[in-house]
Design a protein around this nucleic acid. Structure first.
Length: 490
RNA sequence: GAGCCGCUAGCUCAGUCGGUAGAGCAACGGACUUUUAAUCCGUAGGUCGACGGUUCGAGCCCGUCGCGGCUCACCA
């Protein structure tokens, strides 16, 4: 860059002038003892007289986000981690020299302020500065104060600007943090132990999705970024860790959309001696509790629709849901010809080799999923689309599995775990064959996982919850990118 | 990967029928010691996403490409 923009040149010049006057424009000597919110909290409900009678001196540091300068005085708003607070800087309060330094402060700079509190004429709590320190000179102008930063691409690529300019974005990511904390707390209180399992897998498993491939040079070994932690968490059940959970990233080499980011966060948890029925209750309790705590209510507005998280939630079998929303006789789903004709009628592309269970699942996803707005557990998943779930003891064609749908989206997936090593091997082989049949790709079988099962895995149930999607629901975010700090950009 | 929409000053946005590139905020100079989208006077700031074409003349019309958003497909 041979020609600097005026605003950058001006700010560099100011920084240089300060340096030559013996002022470090990147000082780190100021210790803020209070946050904006703490000071506001201190005087919440106080009268003007009470505030002005208080002789406490507060120290506050933050970014200057607005500046209204008069000849020998100025008002600034400082923004810190907790919010904003106004400071009033007067020449005769801080002295001539200090005021000369302050005159070189721009919007965007970090400053520290020390002083007593007062109420302005318009009743705004303000710190009357007795001392002002420049802490960091900003060389670039911030986005505009009134409209903030709107450009979606800039918001994602330069998230720091989005966070500075848009308070609702700060709120969203604060909510995300709280949601994860509450999930962790809930599971720990229920006796679950947090673990970390490999992110790089020799054989990708635990879900059906395209993996990212990578390579370890020293071992000359191909590896895959994990698509799910499931098979490792179950090895821990074999190892006797009866209740485990992991909150971490999964990576799927698939399309990107408002619901899909290539890396996304899931919580997966496994509980020995529990069934998928137990997990439905656990899930209702956990999510409705988190909703109440984060949103202050179990009813939230999501993109203009009210969603009620109060338990209990509706439960429907997949066949019931498919027949109800597809408007046909449930008995048709038991008849292979009628099933296939319904699938064709709703516009599904068919190759002619789909099994009945695959057709039921495809019809369900097509006709019912978008209409499952209120929290709904869908149960009785066909065995063909559930390679890791335990077969139902009442109907061998389905599994003891549920998925949770909210706002037309899959939020959680859970099942009583298949722990019969021979059945598991058959399912893996069927799955590999299906992959070969439909995609012409040979699926690898995780022999090490089957070996673990042969030692005996206690009966258990496991569940995965998509954290990003849950956060979207609880923060009214339209796109998954609005709840991921740095979404993948081309 | 396909379809639709968008890209103009640091930011937010106008730009008429193809005829000299505009505003607000921010910036710069000046005035101003209770403002809060401060106010007042003055100044500066542009590869109109990129390249090519049509035209006497293109921000505007046409084509190719880039980046982004939404929808669809694969997936959670």
């Amino acid at each position: 860059m041979d020609e600097l923009k005026d605003f950058i040149r001006h700010r560099r010049e100011k920084a240089a002038e300060l340096r030559s006057a013996g002022i470090n424009p990147y000082a780190n000597s100021f210790r803020a003892e209070h946050s904006a919110a703490q000071i506001a909290e201190r005087f919440a409900g106080s009268t003007r007289e009470q505030i002005e009678a208080c002789t406490d001196v507060f120290s506050l540091a933050g970014r200057v986000v607005s500046l209204r300068s008069f000849g020998k005085a100025a008002f600034v708003h400082l923004q810190d981690r907790s919010g904003r607070l106004q400071a009033y800087i007067q020449k005769n309060e801080i002295g001539e020299e200090s005021f000369a330094v302050f005159k070189k402060v721009d919007i965007g700079d970090f400053i520290g302020v020390r002083g007593r509190a007062f109420l302005t004429k318009s009743d705004e709590l303000t710190v009357l500065a007795s001392q002002v320190c420049l802490l960091t000179k900003s060389l670039r102008p911030l986005p505009e104060k009134w409209h903030g930063l709107q450009d979606v691409e800039t918001r994602y690529r330069q998230r720091y600007l989005d966070l500075i300019a848009n308070e609702n974005v700060r709120r969203t990511f604060h909510a995300r943090s709280r949601i994860i904390t509450l999930i962790r707390r809930f599971l720990e209180e229920h006796g679950f132990q947090e673990v970390e399992t490999p992110m790089m897998h020799p054989i990708p498993g635990g879900a059906t999705a395209q993996p990212f491939k990578t390579h370890h040079n020293a071992l000359d070994m191909d590896l895959y970024m994990r698509i799910a932690p499931e098979l490792y968490l179950k090895r821990l059940l074999v190892g006797g860790l009866e209740r485990v959970f992991e909150i971490n990233r999964n990576f799927r080499n698939e399309g990107i959309s408002t619901q899909h980011n290539p890396e996304f966060t899931m919580v997966e948890f496994y509980q020995a001696y529990a069934t998928h029925e137990d997990l439905m209750g656990l899930t209702e309790t956990m999510i409705s509790g988190i909703c109440a705590e984060v949103c202050g209510s179990t009813t939230v507005d999501y993109q203009g629709t009210a969603i009620d998280f109060a338990a209990p939630w509706q439960r429907l079998s997949m066949k019931e849901a498919a027949a109800r929303f597809g408007n046909f006789d449930p008995a048709d789903l038991e008849n292979p010809e009628k099933l296939r004709s319904h699938a064709a009628a709703v516009g599904l592309p068919l190759c002619g080799r789909e099994t009945p269970g695959e057709l039921i699942a495809a019809i369900f996803e097509h006709v019912a999923e978008p209409y499952l707005v209120q929290p709904t557990f869908i149960t009785h998943f066909p065995v063909e689309v559930s390679p890791l779930a335990r077969r139902s003891e009442h109907d061998p064609s389905v599994t003891d599995r549920f998925e949770l749908y909210i706002a037309g989206r899959e939020i959680a997936n859970a099942f009583s775990e298949l722990n019969d090593p021979l059945d598991q091997r058959e399912r893996f082989e069927a799955q590999a064959a299906a992959k070969d049949r439909i995609e012409g790709v040979t699926g690898a079988i995780d022999e090490d996982f089957l070996l673990a099962l042969e030692y005996g895995m206690p009966p258990a149930a496991g569940e995965g919850i998509g954290i990003d999607r849950l956060v979207m629901l609880l923060t009214d975010a339209a796109s998954i990118r609005d709840v991921i700090l740095f979404p993948l950009m081309r």
